[in-house]
Simulated assay, not measured.
Amino acid sequence: MSTVVDFIPGVPDYSTVHKPVGSLFDVDQCEWNKFKLSQDQIDTFWKDGFLLNVPVLTPQQCDMILEDYRYFLGGEKHPGMDMLYEYHSNQSGDPDNVLMHALGHWRLTKHFHDLAFLPKVVVGVSQLLEPSGNMTPVRFWHDQLFAKPPKHGGNVAWHQDYSYWTRTSPMCHLTVHIALDDQTEENGALKYIPGSHRWTRDGGKPLPVTDFNFKDMESIKTILTEEEKANFKPVCGNLKKGEASFHHALAVHGSYGNRSDSPRRAAVLNYFKDGVCSNTDEDLLNGIKIPKGQKMEGQFFPLVFDPKWADARN
C-alpha cells in the first residue's frame, strides 16, 4: 500500500502506507546489514530475555518524535483520535500516579509511522525472533506511548507481554522500548527480571494475568513459584535518550513511578514473526478483525523487514 487514505475527512491514516513517508531517517541510504546485532548481543538476549542500551535514535530524532508526542497530549477529542486502538490520559485513574498510555498512534503522524520501520530497530528484531540469530521476515503488531509526568508519574505493574497477546499464535513476538528521555531509577525507568522469559505454565503458556494494579507492584508474586520468587531480582534499564531495550514476549518487566523533576516518555514498538496467525474471531485491536487461524497481515500489520531486502543491497 502506498497511497495515504483519510480515515476521517482531512485526517490521513498512515496505516495505508507500508513504507516510510516522512523525514525521520533516509531510507534511500539504508544499508540493512550494518544495523545487525552482534553475536554477543544475541546471546545476552536469549540468556536474560532482554537486551539493554541499544542506540536507535539520535537526540535530534527523539526531539522530532517528541514534537509529534504533543499531538496525543491534547485529549480524546483531538482530530483523528478515533483511529487509536486505545487512549488513556491517565490509565491509573489516580491523579497522584498519572500514566498516559496510547496505542495506534503510528496511524496519525509521519514520525511515529516511520518509527515502526526504523532499520536500527527492525533488523535487530529480525535477528532476535529466531534463537539461532538468523534473520526472519518481521511484521508490525502495534505501538504504544507511555508518559509519566514529573513528580506524580504512575507505575506499570510487573507483567509478561504475551499474557495479553494470546489472541495471536504462535508466540513469536518481541517488544522494543525506546527512551525519549533519559531513564533512571528516580523517574521510573523500565526494569526487567533476568531469566523470566523461561517462566511458563502448562507446556509453555505465559504466566496467568494478575490484577493490573497501578499502585501495587507486587501482585505478580501471588502466582509465582518459590523458585521464581527467589530469582525475582530486578535489573534497571537506565536507558539514555535514544537508546532502546529489546525484550522477549515472556520477559517479566515493569516500572515504578516518576518522582523526579523531569518527564519520562517512551515509545514502544511491538512486532511478530511473519506467519503468526489470529487466534480469535473477536477484535485483535479496536475494530480490527482477522478470522481465527488466518495469517496476520494486511493494512494494519505491515511487513517492516524481509532479509531479502538486505540481500538485495549486497
Rank of each mutant, 00 (worst) to 15 (best):
Q294R: 04
F140I: 09
P95T: 10
P131S: 01
L73Y: 02
F50N: 00
V17F: 03
W199L: 05
G75N: 08
P20Y: 11
T280K: 14
E76T: 10
P150M: 01
H248N: 09
I178T: 08
H105T: 14
D143Q: 08
P170A: 11
V235E: 02
S126R: 08
L118F: 04
P95E: 04
K110P: 08
D182S: 11
T184H: 12
N258A: 07
L250W: 04
P55H: 06
M81H: 13
H105V: 14
L269D: 01
L250N: 12
V11K: 10
D40C: 09
F50Q: 00
E67V: 15
I220Q: 03
N155E: 09
R107I: 04
T109Q: 14
E67L: 03
P55E: 05
G153F: 06
K205F: 02
G93P: 12
A266T: 07
L51M: 00
Q39H: 12
F72Q: 03
D13R: 11
F45D: 00
F117E: 00
D216G: 05
S169R: 12
T184E: 07
T210P: 06
H113N: 07
A249F: 13
H142A: 00
T136E: 09
T280W: 13
V138W: 08
W309D: 04
R313N: 14
V176N: 01
K295I: 07
N155F: 07
P9N: 15
T58I: 10
T44L: 11
G75I: 04
D274F: 10
H173E: 10
N33L: 10
L108D: 01
N286R: 15
I178L: 10
Q127T: 13
T16L: 03
R264E: 00
T136H: 03
G133W: 06
K221T: 03
G257P: 10
P307W: 14
A244L: 02
Y69A: 07
F117I: 02
C30Y: 03
G93H: 14
G237S: 13
N314S: 15
Y164M: 07
S92E: 09
N90C: 10
E243P: 06
C172H: 14
D306G: 14
L51G: 00
D40T: 15
Y192V: 00
D274M: 08
E297Y: 09
M217T: 08
E282D: 15
Q39L: 06
K292D: 03
D48P: 13
D48G: 02
K148H: 12
N314H: 13
V156K: 10
S278A: 13
S2I: 02
N53L: 01
V56C: 06
E218V: 05
A189M: 09
V17H: 11
H248G: 10
S92W: 11
D216R: 07
N314Y: 10
G195A: 05
F25Y: 14
M100E: 01
D114Q: 09
Q294N: 06
N97W: 06
A267C: 09
T210V: 15
T16K: 03
K47M: 01
D13N: 14
D261L: 11
F214Q: 09
K221G: 05
F140E: 11
G124F: 04
G74I: 00
G298Q: 02
P12Y: 09
S278W: 08
G74N: 13
D48T: 01
F45M: 01
W199K: 10
Q61S: 05
K19E: 09
K34M: 04
G80R: 11
T222R: 03
N270F: 05
D283I: 14
H105I: 15
I220G: 00
K110Q: 11
E282R: 15
G80Y: 06
